[in-house]
């Protein structure tokens, strides 16, 4: 396998890694115990594998691991690194925005990316942003509510 040496920041920690060119970001993360991002559709449709790459949400299932070179990736595991849940996570709990939980890490990261680029989204903007993230359990309404609740929390 052809490989490339990369320097990257994973959840705030700078590191130099040797990665196979054909390795997917999702596998790189999960092989390191960061199993929050989940494989599901594997076709960039469902959003279960969403992580933030330099702040933007991407499908880790269809991103090459070498893309981390010189860039920074954040996964759901990093959100409570300071000991407290992120406001998005708190809001998901408060609004009962999860059931099986398999989509939840992706939803949380997608929501966080939205609020970082648009801190006070309208309901329609939240819906549009989440359109590419599938939840099969909740019927979405509690998730949209949670994102709006998180926006309020973060503004306060």
């Amino acid at each position: 396998m052809s490989a490339t040496t990369i320097t990257t920041r994973i959840n705030g920690r700078e590191q130099t890694l040797r990665v196979d060119n054909a390795e997917l970001l999702l596998d790189l993360l999960r092989d390191r115990g960061l199993t929050g991002a989940k494989p599901s559709c594997e076709m960039e449709v469902c959003g279960a594998c969403t992580v933030q790459l330099d702040g933007l949400p991407v499908s880790a299932c269809t991103t090459l691991a070498v893309e981390l070179d010189g860039r920074s990736v954040e996964t759901v595991e990093h959100l409570d690194a300071g000991g407290e849940l992120h406001p998005v996570q708190q809001a998901f709990l408060e609004r009962s925005a999860l059931q099986c939980g398999f989509c939840t890490p992706g939803m949380v990261m997608t929501a966080k990316a939205l609020l970082e680029s648009n801190p006070q989204p309208t309901r329609d903007e939240v819906t549009h942003w989440l359109e590419g993230s599938i939840c099969r359990c909740t019927g979405y309404e509690p998730i949209v509510d949670a994102v709006l609740t998180a926006a309020q929390k973060m503004a306060a």
Binding site: P57, S59, H128, E131, G132, S133
Partner: peptide, 12 residues
């Protein structure tokens, strides 16, 4: 562009 695919595809 705002309605191409989904937010992740648009980002990459």
């Amino acid at each position: 562009e705002r309605a191409v695919a989904n937010v992740r595809v648009r980002a990459a």
